[in-house]
Design a protein around this nucleic acid. Structure first.
Lengths: 346, 346
DNA sequence: CAACTTTTGGCAATCGCTTGCCGGTGTGTT
DNA sequence: AACACACCGGCAAGCGATTGCCAAAAGTTG
């Protein structure tokens, strides 16, 4: 127990040099290449040597350098997740989903907030080209052309933004719009207003389309207001404008806006659901305990995140899962709570 | 316009090799070291050459490799932010704060969810030693000894977890507990129950202490129940237990639990604030629109995140800001809303 | 104009790990 | 006994930057 090297490095206590595969190799009396293989390609090395190496690695409390590994292997072990706004609860479930799945697969998650801005998104995408192995892009604000270019450069999966150039996870909110409309119709509403989200949002257009279609087949008159930023604060303006349309029921782009409207209506003494009905979208945290609890469109958002990761991983490593899917559609359903009720007779 | 190299690499359209400083150096007719300096140490190189190099870099759409840079310079350009639960709205604001400040300083944020588990936290910390330049640790579950060890190994700032071994950002919720108690006392409450958070949470102990102290100086009898997980779901059990204490007012570890209690009381027909009063903590998203709106302890959480980043940056780079502070305390105040009211006469 | 200082840019050694290639052993097949 | 073929481990060449050291060029000074 005193033949090998290991200088007594113990110093002040702060930052001693970290062990590298070289240190392990020396201790084990093998080449660094063997250590490398033992640690990241186990079946390529004899079981006994591997165990010995692993033991030493553990003793030294060895942690491989992602940097060096990435530099030489070309892979970074990181996946970037881009969302328009980290404080929007909707994305938190997505993030939670991607986080879990990525961790399980041994990847690191790089969270990026694109601030609902196209240029920030593009810039992030640009620098991430080098930093990450792939990208999950939620609710992208990019144009089709931009998206195509990005998809051509790096592995990509989009969420709530269909494109032919990359696999996509869609949350079928448009499908649920039909349910929402039927629900409102059966409550006697004949005039419905859609409170639209940001112009650059792909989802808001799809939802509006779905609503128009569904309405034309029923006896419902629909109008649209907006755009509104997807924040509770925008809800106030939206509520005021909504009242001006003369409609008795409103479908909001998302729950944030819907909740903001709820608050504003309360301020103005408009009763929900007695005077007007509101339907939200996403069933975010808070939708169940606001006042009144919000009727909204619910879906397995966290699973959408997980699915996106699976699709991306399949793209990166063809052996990963079965046939790589190009499209996954998350089911949705109308979660009826107390913000919708019978239409008020004129 | 045809003298230099640049083989027509245009191929299928997918992943051509990315430009490196070598490519730029060749094009510019200088050494790679010059390019490196021109790009990351501008004043070290002649203005004209620098401009030329910058121009070429832009043309080539050059993006430096963080990996290579990190490998040779020792810095990674990334800061890790560890939170116990990414879906807890309290951390939304912290994350938003760190995100902003880090981006402004040119750092990448690595978000890690430690799942309220000590071992996950330790493990993440271990591997992050190599991956990040510094760490922001929110509401750590570590023991003092563990924390000290971690702090000895890597630059660290804690949030809501004081330790002598690292700079800390504290949100003065204990201070606000006094306000809360005074508020309740003035409403005639004489029996108050504290609904405690996780045992491993440092904050819950401090709050309880503050409450006990404040209560002993007034004419209030306080009891404590718990521990409860900081989720709305735990609120139901907490509500039931709280009722059993015979107290007329409850102070919850955080808003999540408080909101859960609100829901449970509603189910059981206990009226808030007529029958019992509830005070939450954190003033998270949702506290203002739940039913009834929650009286809670409010503070500039996002700023806490920003401050933590500043303190960490000061630690990494002494020239960054003035004297590195070891402690920052965020002010708090009681945000009175509708969940507290006069004590019900026995 | 010589001696000296400051700028500026090049050389080459790293950083820590991966991986293509090669050769030495051990086992299995005729 | 001879040949083929896994299996295993070593060698060494990178990956793409940074940076200490050095020398040529340019600027200063008396």
């Amino acid at each position: 127990m005193s033949d090998t090297s290991a200088p007594p490095a113990a110093s002040e206590g702060a930052d001693q040099r970290m062990p590298t595969i070289r240190d392990i190799a020396e201790r084990a009396g093998v080449a660094t290449s063997t250590v490398s293989r033992a640690l990241s390609n186990p079946q390529r090395v004899n079981a006994r040597t591997r165990e010995r190496i692993e033991k030493i690695a553990a003793e030294l409390n060895y942690v491989p350098s992602t940097q060096a590994r990435g530099l030489s292997s070309g892979r970074t072990g990181a996946i970037a997740v881009l969302v328009p706004d980290v404080t929007n609860p909707f994305y938190f479930d997505i993030i939670r989903g991607t986080q879990n799945q990525l961790k399980a697969a041994g990847y690191t998650q790089l969270l990026v907030d694109t601030e609902e801005a196209t240029d920030v998104e593009l810039d992030a995408l640009r620098r991430l080209r080098r930093t990450s192995d792939g990208i999950i892009l939620a609710a992208s604000r990019l144009t089709d052309a931009q998206l195509a270019e990005v998809a051509g450069r790096q592995p990509l999966v989009t969420i709530n933004r269909a494109t032919a150039d990359a696999p996509t996870v869609l949350i079928d909110t448009p499908g649920a719009m039909v349910q929402a409309l039927e629900h409102l119709a059966s409550l006697g509403h004949t005039k419905v207003t859609y409170v639209g989200g940001p112009t650059s949002s792909w989802s808001t257009h799809r939802r509006w389309q779905a609503i128009q279609e569904a309405a034309s087949r029923r006896n419902i008159e629909v109008t649209r207001i907006g755009p509104y930023a997807p924040k509770t604060l925008s809800g106030a303006a939206a509520a005021d404008a909504a009242l001006g349309t003369g409609a008795t029921a409103f479908i909001a782009f998302n729950d944030l806006i819907a909740i903001g409207m709820l608050q504003r209506f309360r301020e103005r003494g408009v009763r929900v659901p007695e005077d007007v009905s509101i339907v939200g979208c996403d069933d975010i945290f808070g939708a169940d305990f606001c006042n009144p609890p919000l009727t909204t469109i619910s879906s397995p958002i966290e699973q959408a995140g997980r699915t996106a990761v699976s699709m991306l991983l399949a793209q990166l490593d063809p052996l990963y899962g079965g046939t790589p899917r190009k499209l996954a559609v998350m089911p949705t359903h109308l979660q009826v709570r107390a913000s919708t009720g019978p239409a008020k007779l004129a």
